[in-house]
Design a protein around this nucleic acid. Structure first.
Length: 521
RNA sequence: GGAAGGGUGGCCGAGUGGUUUAAGGCACCGGUCUUGAAAACCGGCGUACCCGCAAGGGUACCGUGAGUUCGAAUCUCACCCCUUCCGCCA
């Protein structure tokens, strides 16, 4: 809305993504921003032109369609009048005209729906535009270290006379980390933690939450749902593009839900035609036996699966999803902002594109624990809040006295929803590498726009000023504060002694019942 | 799982087939009055989209989807959600 409220105000930082009107008015800014992210063309056209041409087709259809609708309405009123005057002939003539209008309207509505579907799909898969100060680059090698944020130094194991082991070597030797046992239950990329390691995972989460809910950090602790609906995953932009990275929980539809799905299908005229009996849904499932068979057309089958999603939930890949969506479909009072939320939750990731990467140890798991930070703020405050959030995440690593550095991600390494991202990379002496332990992103109004009620794309999360007026979309930020699994690894590798025991950092001891060292029992 | 009642604009709430371009109230904005404020009074006040330089005009929207009808907030069907009660279970 910024673009319209303030004519001439067209910097990218307020670029209203998904607003086709904004794209229409600022095609060059739009294309330039996407080019920086390495996304340029659709065929030979710039992306903006493709979108604008779809939009023009859409508007042309609406223009004609609304003409017919206006005529239908007027004719209906005239029928009312004619009938009052008992002029049956005139009424019948008008009815015929209404019928003609209806035919045209039905056709045009179909066309309109198709074009809007295509436009919506295209817009939903366009990532956020980078802020001006984000470095350009195609991959992680172009990330830029953030000056003045490096903390601590690498521990000198050579001087101490032994080589640092990796976390899984330490954990397995302690008998507190079992990957084979986990594989028996769940396959690769799962782990069973036992005794001291299990307790340390709990202790870390608790420490982080205590730090962030302190008065100084000011986050509100939340225990959110871990299973969420499609539109929630769309809101934070895991969908539609990244469904392969997610886990899903499924239950069978009830009789009522299933039959509703079939009746909708029939109404939408996909060749499939169910019997009227109320048990049609389960009979259909039996006929299908899990496959498409010949009962459906391609489109009908796709739609059937879509309708079955009534009984499906996504497992959250991060608490960012439920925390950010707490303000979805709503108008937040300005005096409630900034809203700062934190949660310690399990996170689930399919890691589908990561075959062969980090296969040993618990760096990359299907399930891990993470403390997440989310801020909902007014647009003017988001940059400031981003720095603040980074400082909050850094704080827990400082408390654990872990050496880290901070990098600003370049345009090619940023996540889909981010305008700008800082990664905190902790030093892992066993791996002899810096590894990401936190990622803090400013998403601007990108997610706020997406968190609209299903079917009402113009009603995302906005805020109301003290004068009672709706001001615009909120800005959302999220960051890890920090990943508990990786923090566990970092503590293990950095605090190991030559016997393979783990010395407890001071900050953790109160949460470990006063234990100063974890060693093989 | 069973029963009953609900879902209408920022909020409350009326509305059971055609001047509903949704009554009324609250909140909010402007004005009159007042030293100032309150009260009172007068006026304004939904969202999205389309056409237009603009003034303005048009279309859609009463939980969601479909149906009946020349015409639906209103009638029919299914679903979702909320409230209360009962049953069952962590």
């Amino acid at each position: 809305m910024d673009g319209r409220d303030k004519p001439g105000h067209d910097t990218l930082k307020s670029a209203p993504m998904y607003d086709i009107k904004w794209i229409r008015e600022h095609p060059d800014d739009f294309d330039r921003g996407l080019t920086r992210r390495g996304i340029t063309r659709r065929g030979l056209q710039p992306l903006s032109q493709y979108l604008i041409s779809l939009d023009e087709r859409r508007r042309a259809i609406i223009r004609v369609s609304e003409g017919f609708q206006a005529r239908r309405r007027a004719a209906s009123d005239q029928i009312h009048q004619a009938m009052a005057k008992k002029d049956t002939a005139a009424a019948e003539a008008l009815k015929a005209e209404v019928a003609e209008c209806k035919t045209s309207i039905t056709t045009l509505e179909g066309e309109q729906k198709a074009v809007e579907e295509e436009l919506k799909k295209a817009l939903a898969e366009i990532p956020n535009l980078p802020l001006d100060d984000v470095p350009d680059g195609a991959d992680a090698s172009k990330n830029v270290e953030l000056k003045g944020h490096t903390f601590g130094a690498k521990r000198d194991f050579k001087k101490e006379g032994f080589t640092a082991k990796q976390h899984f070597e330490l954990g397995e030797a302690l008998g507190m980390m079992d990957f084979e046992l986990a594989a028996k239950l769940s396959g690769a990329r799962f782990v069973v933690l036992l005794k001291g390691m299990a307790r340390m995972e709990r202790a870390l989460g608790q420490l982080f939450l205590d730090v962030h809910t302190s008065e100084k950090h000011g986050y509100t602790e939340v225990s959110p749902p871990l299973l969420v609906r499609d539109e929630v995953m769309f809101g934070t932009a895991q969908l539609p593009k990244f469904s392969e990275d997610q886990f899903k929980a499924v239950r069978k539809l009830t009789k009522g839900e299933g039959n509703d799905a079939l009746i909708r299908l029939r109404n939408e005229d996909h060749s499939f035609n169910p019997q009227e009996e109320t048990s049609a849904y389960f009979e259909t499932l039996e006929v299908l036996g899990g496959g498409k068979k010949d009962v459906f057309t391609e489109a009908g089958w796709a739609r059937f699966q879509e309708l079955q999603q009534a009984g499906e939930w996504w497992l959250i890949p991060t608490a960012e999803v439920p925390l950010t969506n707490l303000v979805r479909e709503s108008i937040v009072d300005e005096d409630k902002l900034p809203m700062r939320l934190t949660a310690c939750t399990p996170c689930f990731r399919a890691e589908a594109g990561a075959a062969g990467k980090d296969t040993r140890g618990m760096i990359r798991q299907h399930q891990f624990t993470k403390v997440e930070l989310v801020s909902i703020v007014t647009p003017e405050k988001s940059k400031e809040e981003h720095e603040r959030m980074l400082a909050c995440a850094e704080e827990v690593l400082k408390k654990l006295d872990l050496h880290y550095r901070v990098v600003t991600l370049c345009t090619g390494d940023m996540g889909f929803a981010a305008q700008k991202t800082y990664d905190i990379e902790v030093w892992l002496p066993g791996q002899n590498m810096y590894r990401e332990i936190s990622s803090c992103s400013n998403c601007g109004e990108f997610q706020a726009r997406r968190m609209h009620p299903p079917g009402k794309p113009s009603e995302g999360t906005r805020y109301r000023g003290k004068d009672g007026k709706i001001k615009g979309f909120v800005h959302t930020l999220n960051g890890s504060g920090v990943a508990v699994g990786r923090a566990l690894i970092a503590v293990m590798e950095n605090y190991q002694d030559e016997n393979g025991a783990i010395v407890m950092p001071d900050a953790l001891r109160p949460y470990m019942g006063g234990i100063t060292k974890i060693e093989r029992s």
